[in-house]
Design a protein around this nucleic acid. Sequence first.
DNA 1: TCTTTATCTTGTTTACTAAACAAATTTCGA
DNA 2: TCGAAATTTGTTTAGTAAACAAGATAAAGA
Lengths: 338, 338
Amino acid sequence: MSKSKTNMRDIASAAGVSVTAVWMVIHEKPGISPSTAEKVWSVINNLDYKPRKSNSNSQMDAVGLLIEQSSIPAISDVFYGDVIRGVQSEAERLGMRVVLSVFDRNKRGFDLNGLIQDVRGVVVANDGDLPAQTVLQLTALDMPIVLIESYIAGHVFPCVLGDNFMAGYQITRHILNLGHRDIAVLKGPSKYSSLVDRLRGCMAAMAEEHLLFPPEWMPEPMSGHPLKGYVQMQEILALDRHPTAVIAISDKTAIGAMGAIREAGLRIPDDIAIGSIDNTRESQFMRPPLTTVHIPKYELGVLAMQKLNRIIMGEDTTAFKSVVYSELIVRESCGSAR
Amino acid sequence: MSKSKTNMRDIASAAGVSVTAVWMVIHEKPGISPSTAEKVWSVINNLDYKPRKSNSNSQMDAVGLLIEQSSIPAISDVFYGDVIRGVQSEAERLGMRVVLSVFDRNKRGFDLNGLIQDVRGVVVANDGDLPAQTVLQLTALDMPIVLIESYIAGHVFPCVLGDNFMAGYQITRHILNLGHRDIAVLKGPSKYSSLVDRLRGCMAAMAEEHLLFPPEWMPEPMSGHPLKGYVQMQEILALDRHPTAVIAISDKTAIGAMGAIREAGLRIPDDIAIGSIDNTRESQFMRPPLTTVHIPKYELGVLAMQKLNRIIMGEDTTAFKSVVYSELIVRESCGSAR
DNA sequence: TCTTTATCTTGTTTACTAAACAAATTTCGA
DNA sequence: TCGAAATTTGTTTAGTAAACAAGATAAAGA
């Protein structure tokens, strides 16, 4: 008759309710009155009840957040900081843990098995360096995935994106409306699908005015260079003819470019206007404050988590893109109409 | 003691279950065994039970489907037929009725009150003729809405779209890859946001090759003309120089254009290649079969209904675009590489 | 001694109920 | 003959008993 430990049945009889009721209280299911819940909790404390086996799914469900190595310092920083916060807070609301998993571009053959062991799905914050193959591997294992700010051409995956195309269109349209016609663009590496979409949006806006970016005003980006737009802008400024406006594909690129412009002794926006895309926190503190297009990064994160949850629950059947609206933020770096 | 009618309590005692169980059977709630359900149903039939008052929400929830007058014949026809089927079938799955409501562009001051009376939300299958004002009115009344294949610039509404931009890009890229450089485009009226997105996609693909559509090869569409692309194509063929390929902004436009090309005594695709967007059912039966980009119209409908349902349920909080993937369908109207 | 099988715990789920509640509807006294 | 009170009817909340699943433990067989 010497019981090893108190169990749910003990609690139930001590509190004068059914085992089911005790179970419902512990698992915070609806259909229990506050008074009963309080009674049960106090009995649980008195009898010092511990759930016997840390049972199967008594530990929360978890989702993986796959992110590229170099973005890790960025967590508290520019772009991905906000989306990670979004993923995390929505996961919490849904009662899930987020396990962070880092992809190292130098280490070949990323160990997926470690990740997928105890995870219900993964959010892939693709930076372009996570090869498509890794993503394909995951889906081959029937692991639900959601991509953030990237898609894989020729494959149909659920993803959530900023409206990159429209963002490119909006900033270009703004600069065009200000009267500029000699416009340069600082593009990003083509492995980032979000950045190529932005560029396409810029091109479409130009084309509507029957304009093309001159090839010499679209320099290729330096891969791996710390100050993104700096070298590209220098290349442009070394040419005979200067543009009157520059579009930077991201705020980070704009920072580099503004450095190069200032070093050349030119004024922003009087000599060269500059606009970009992202609306990272620092953009408003730059000198002059940057005119840019807001991409709702936090919302990107919560939407991704919601979408992943729906896929796990079997609600979302067809894969589609969720695209959050972008918004032009006019500050001072583009000046006013000429 | 003479009861006027049998009620739930009678059924319950006759079937030997609780009133709650009877209620659950009638409302098809989970948690009833098939055997009990059958027993209750047979008692209901024997005692000829009719629910007393056709009670409040015993009639299903309904959603409105707002569609433009001229699209009505199209229900069994080209584009909107499939999306309406999608909306309807998903609504049925969710236990909702769809009430169809027609917008007549000639009759000013559309009577919303009639529609919103007993409807939980509205799917707006916007054709461009439904003015933004009508949609704004609806949201001012706190009526949840979802737009299909359109968005309103400067406003943030939940909507579901085909990937029109990518579709335009894909068909143009295909034609470019085939070696064409002299390309014309038959655009649509600018009031249709989906058609302007397609055109922008085309322009972006061209711009990537440092190409622009010559203005004379981008004729304005005839509004109201029955055969969409016919006149536009004739205008192009009347010029001195002919393009080697034409992009039609929709399958319907392609049909008209192909007529004009053939009347001019030219062969498709040998003299002029033609590609378009939609992949309507007829496109595969055309002569030659049309190379086009598939827009998943049925899925558009079910996604719209799902989204509306979530908004009604208060699950979706931030408005965003749901974009379904498009797919290039290569048939014969573009021929092979030149 | 080692493995296999049966039994027992413990937690979880299903199918169902009593009683409280809310909204119409009827009754009834002034 | 009008309005408050009582009643009917459907609906919701807060539970329960019993079946079920799966790991732990004990018992039996090779």
